[in-house]
Structure formats: C-alpha cells, structure tokens
C-alpha cells in the first residue's frame, strides 16, 4: 500500500466519523418521512375509504393533474411568488442603495430591520389579522385619519385586494432582511472601484450597472432564489390571514396540499400534491442554477 492511499483511507475514515452523527439524525428526521410520504402518495390513502389503503400506482398524481383547483392554485402561487419576490427584491435593493452610507445609529437601524424577520410566524399572522380587521383594524383607522380613504376598506374581502394584502404582509416581513443582505454586499464593494469609474467618466447609471450591480450580483441571486423557493411554499401567512379565501382566491399550493390532507382527509392525494409542488420548486432551482449562477464570476 502506498503512502498516499493510506493517507486517503485515514482521511475518509475521519470524514465518515465527522459526517456520521449528522447523517444519522438527517436519515431519521428527513429521509424516513420523505420515503414514508412518497409511499403514501402511491396508495389510496383515504381515511373515509378502505382501511387497508391499497396501492393505486400513480392514480393520486393523475387525480391532482386533472383537478381544476390544483391548476388554479398553481396559478395563484405563481402570481403570489412573482408579486412578492419582485416587490421584495426591488424594494430591498432600493433601500439598501439609499442606506449605503455611514451614519450614526446604523446598528440600531440594522436591529430594527431584523425584527420582522425574527418574530414567530404565528405572531406575524395574528398581528396582521388584527391590523387588517375590516371594522376595527389599525390600517383602516390610520388611513382614515390621514384622509387617504373616506370609508373603511374590507382588505381581505375581494380576491385581488386580498391577494395584494397577503403579498404586502409578506413584503413587510421579508424585505428588511433582504435589504440587510444586500447592504452587506454593497458595503463590501471596494470604494476604489467607484473612484475608478468616476475617473473613467462613467455616469451614475453606468456606475450602478457596471460596478454596483455587477459586484452584488451573487448576493442578489442568493436572495432571489431563496425568496422564490420560500414564497412558492408559503403556507403560514395564508392560513392565518385568509384560509385561502375569499372564494379560494388566495389558495396557494401549500394550502391546497393542506386541504387535501387535512380537510378532504385523503393523505395520498395530499402527499402527491406535495411531491408535485416540490418538483416544481426543483425545476425553478435548476433553472436558477443554469440560467443565473453559471455566469457569476468571483
């Protein structure tokens, strides 16, 4: 045996020892439920039906694909995701650019910006439900006093308005944190690059595009892909605020899956919907990796 192969063997042993604890826990907590729920998705797992839950092949998947409500909720999910992510990234970038300078109280501002991100989603839902209450909510009260509206608005009462409010609530929670990520990236841009651009006679827009944007691109893409993934699977907020209503207009895929499992009590269809949803997320992740990540240079 050569010296290097002995060393390699030792190395692998160490690696195994180091990875093993994490691997055991993840196998139990992540892998087992995954396999289990996949098996469920192949069975006629209907609590109202035959208790032996016979295997039914891809029937559950076919059911989901043929369900009008599934396609509707896929559309709703895409609208929600596009709306929320665009607004969040856009606003976060604007705020980050505006705040990218040294000033007193920077630390305090950073703490404030972290607050919406840090609080429990349960609390977030309770909080906004109360603020958006159609008759006693603070939002109506405030806008009325400021003279913006002259009649109380039923924020969660019409399909488009409810969707907008759900998006804005999500924007409130997520934007400040993304802003901080982008701000950190902006502050790592060396100032000599700006000086160089100035010397080259580049205008503000060109400087922004060729220096700023180019250099914070990795951070921007990370924020973009993480937000997209999380928005696609959002559930908590919808559950707390609208429960998919009014008239199913905010029924995102996460909520549809929940409906199938816990209300219709067909665990098989619920699991199938969940796998389809995960597959969609996967497609988008691959898309991001292919289209976006490959041209990021360090």
């Amino acid at each position: 045996m050569t010296n290097t192969s002995v060393k390699r063997k030792q190395e692998l042993k160490l690696a195994l020892g180091l990875v093993l604890p994490a691997l055991i826990i993840m196998a139990a907590v992540n892998l087992y439920p995954l396999i289990y729920s996949f098996v469920i998705s192949l069975r006629d797992y209907d609590f109202h039906g035959d208790k032996s839950y016979p295997f039914c092949g891809l029937e559950n998947y076919i059911y989901i694909f043929e369900d009008v409500r599934f396609w509707r909720s896929l559309g709703i999910t895409l609208i929600f995701t596009a709306g929320a992510v665009t607004l969040e990234i856009g606003l976060a970038l604007m705020c980050a650019l505006a705040l990218n300078r040294k000033f007193r109280g920077q630390g305090a501002l950073r703490v404030i910006a972290l607050l919406p991100w840090a609080i429990p989603p349960v609390v977030n839902g309770i909080l906004w439900k109360w603020i958006l209450n159609p008759r006693y909510g603070a939002l109506n009260g405030l806008l009325m006093q400021l003279g913006v509206i002259d009649e109380y608005i039923v924020w969660l009462g019409s399909p488009s308005l409810a969707m907008l409010m759900v998006i804005l609530t999500d924007v409130w929670k997520e934007t400040p944190f993304i802003m901080l990520l982008l701000l950190a990236a902006l502050q790592s841009v060396p100032s000599y690059l700006y000086d160089a651009a100035k010397i080259d006679g580049a205008g503000a827009f060109r400087t922004f595009k060729e220096v700023t944007l180019a250099l914070i691109r990795p951070a921007l893409f990370v924020a973009l892909s993480l937000r997209t993934i999380w928005a696609l699977k959002s559930f908590d907020l919808i559950y707390a605020l609208t429960q998919g209503g009014p008239s199913n207009s905010t029924e995102v895929l996460g909520y549809y899956t929940y409906q199938k499992s816990f209300v219709s009590l067909h665990m098989g269809r619920g699991a199938a919907a969940a796998y389809i949803m995960t597959f969609i997320v996967l497609l988008i992740v691959i898309f991001y990796q292919k289209a976006v990540y490959q041209d990021v240079e360090y």
């Binding site: 993840m26 139990a28 907590v29 992540n30 892998l31 087992y32 439920p33 995954l34 289990y36 729920s37 469920i40 993934i229 696609l232 699977k233 559930f235 996460g254 899956t257 929940y258 499992s261 816990f262 665990m267 619920g270 699991a271 969940a274 796998y275 949803m277 995960t278 997320v281 996967l282 992740v285």
Partner: peptide, 19 residues
C-alpha cells in the same frame, strides 16, 4: 436534502409523529 426540505411540513409531520 436541501431541496427535499421544500416538501410541505403538512405531509412530513405524520411520519415524524410515527417515528
């Protein structure tokens, strides 16, 4: 595994319960 985490909790929670 990271991607698999994208699967909604609702579906995972019952196997976790059983585990």
């Amino acid at each position: 595994i990271l991607i698999a985490q994208m699967i909604p909790m609702i579906v995972i929670v019952i196997p976790l319960f059983l585990f």
